[in-house]
Design a protein around this nucleic acid. Structure first.
Lengths: 131, 131
DNA sequence: GTCCATGCAAATAATTTGCAACGCA
DNA sequence: TGCGTTGCAAATTATTTGCATGGAC
């Protein structure tokens, strides 16, 4: 819901930059903790408000991975995510497109399939080695 | 975590039966509202506790569809779900298996892909006709 | 009688929102 | 100056939990 013009905000820029340099898909709380190093008085509300704006603008992705709080991703290139069931980490997957599943899903469906959300899960490399 | 033996409970049986006959993937609140017709004093806590047990036993599926509360599905046959971005309804999809995407995802991945969670989204048949 | 299940209420977790002060344009 | 943004706190939403009582076995 973008009803009015956006104004520059240091906090928003910092959150965006922070996410652009992280590949571990942090939660709002983790982002908040890191932002406090830069802005000791920043509030969680500000973090949530700006994350929400950035998601609406398409500059950040919100990952709702079932249990636990939402996570945020500064990489908006289309890609998929893997959730390790041991350590709960969320990893990026380098894989070819699977957009054809939209066609498969639409074959017996009365309506329009516009996309899909897919999360892969299993045990990550690190956890496989540990066990 | 099932540490102790389960005892019969009318409430749990009713919730299970209710879900077995619904195809609209109700939320805990909706289940609660319906259960109150049968058990005027049933509490939300009881609904949540029993849903959690049923999910652990594999007799009910929990659907975490991003926004909004979790939904529950009494149909445990493997199948996929579609979320209408207009009316928010969650529909079952009759489609062939797409388990091959696990193989695709695992091709450049250092770890073990055990499965995936996929939700399709778009506009359902009813909403397409309305617009 | 033992121990799980229930109802009720309070607690928790994640996120959103109201409001007065602040800061970009 | 005008209106978006912030910090702070309170509110909301979804879900979980503690506890005394009730019910299954």
């Amino acid at each position: 819901m973008l009803l009015s013009a956006l104004k520059y905000s240091r906090q928003r820029e910092s959150i965006k930059e922070f996410l652009a340099n992280r590949y571990d898909h942090p939660t709002a709380d983790m982002i908040y903790a890191n932002m406090r190093a830069l802005y000791p008085n920043i509030s969680l509300g500000t973090v949530y408000r700006n994350l929400s704006l950035l998601v609406d603008m398409g500059e950040v992705l919100k990952l709702s991975v079932g249990d636990g709080p939402d996570r945020f991703d500064g990489n908006t290139d289309p890609h998929y995510h893997f959730i390790c069931t041991e350590c709960q980490n969320v990893l990026d997957l380098k894989m070819e497109s699977i957009d054809h599943i939209n066609v498969i899903a639409g074959q017996n469906f009365d309506g329009e399939i516009k996309g899909h959300m897919t999360y892969f899960y299993g045990v990550c490399g690190d956890c496989t080695k540990k066990s």
